[in-house]
Design a binder for these strands. Structure first.
Length: 272
DNA sequence: TACCAGGGCCTTT
DNA sequence: AAAGGCCATGGT
């Protein structure tokens, strides 16, 4: 588990091998964190901006009050979860154990469901540099300015009132109509994203896939990264390769409840 | 069933 | 420098 303390308006996390911010912020689950020249990272989450840095086992959240940390960042960074305990469970599987020992400290973030849904619609049939570009243009054009370079993610209501023409600056291609459909269904409360995490994973999948442009892969990402479903297991081409090569008979039962978290390590291993 | 639809990054040639 | 592969979903 991760201990923390407050000092000089910063939060200091003593995270042993349970938190590697570079791997966590740049492993394909979030697209708006950028590394600064001093190796710290900056990002906008909701209407907040954060600078975060790491020095060995100490992670520093800069200029964050105790209240803001407890109320928001603690959950965002999944600090309530004991990753050492998870690593113990994962060590039952040789492949996973090797991946964990190589890439200690990847954490699954608890992100905003609307931003996650929209981001993973954009991610489909796409590569990471371009995904980041489209999302950046989306925020710059339609989000609120939060600081010098950082914008909030535009709300579903805001996007729902736009047309495909309005979104041409994004250069999102055929995904534009999917973004609009998602925004309209969310803004009208036809899909209530805040209630998805209370559904069974089967019903949650069905609900999300009512959106045009959301299939099994995108819905699984939304469930894992923003709806507290650690058992969600997104299968992209890389993970299909992992399964074919290492798990022809399926993922071990003991891993399944945390399959999505395990997946982050396996995915990273396969891509490197 | 198989293919195509935006587009741009990446690897190979 | 040019060509070809890659990519998740819906539609034909």
């Amino acid at each position: 588990m991760i201990d923390y303390c407050f000092k000089n308006n910063n939060v200091y996390l003593d995270c042993k091998n349970e938190f590697n911010i570079a791997l966590t912020l740049d492993c394909g689950q979030a697209f708006r964190w950028r590394q600064n020249s001093d190796l710290s990272w900056s990002g906008a989450v909701g209407n907040k901006v954060l600078k975060i840095s790491q020095d060995g086992n100490t992670v520093i959240l800069h200029s964050v009050s105790e209240n803001e940390f407890i109320d928001f960042w603690y959950d965002y960074f999944d600090l309530g979860r004991n990753y050492s305990e998870l690593y113990n469970i994962f060590s039952n599987d040789k492949t996973l154990d090797d991946a964990v020992k190589k890439y200690y400290g990847i954490r699954v973030l608890n992100q905003d469901p609307w931003e996650t849904l929209c981001s993973f619609i954009i991610s489909q049939n796409n590569n990471i540099p371009r995904i980041k570009g489209i999302i950046e243009r989306l925020c710059e054009n339609f989000g609120e300015k939060l600081s010098d370079k950082l914008f909030s993610f535009p709300t579903a209501e805001k996007i729902a009132n736009l047309s495909a023409d309005d979104l041409t600056p994004l250069r999102a291609g055929f995904r534009t109509k999917y973004i609009l459909d998602a925004a309209k269904k969310v803004a009208s409360n036809e899909i209530v994203l805040s209630k998805i995490q209370n559904l069974s994973i089967e019903n949650a999948r069905i609900e999300l896939q009512k959106i045009c442009g959301v299939g099994p892969k995108v819905s699984e990402c939304v469930l894992l990264f923003s709806c507290k479903k650690p058992e969600a297991f997104p299968l992209d081409v890389w993970m299909k390769r992992v399964v074919a090569e290492f798990y022809p008979n399926g993922i071990p039962e003991i891993i399944k409840p945390y399959g999505g978290i395990a997946q982050q390590y396996l995915f990273h291993m396969m891509r490197n």
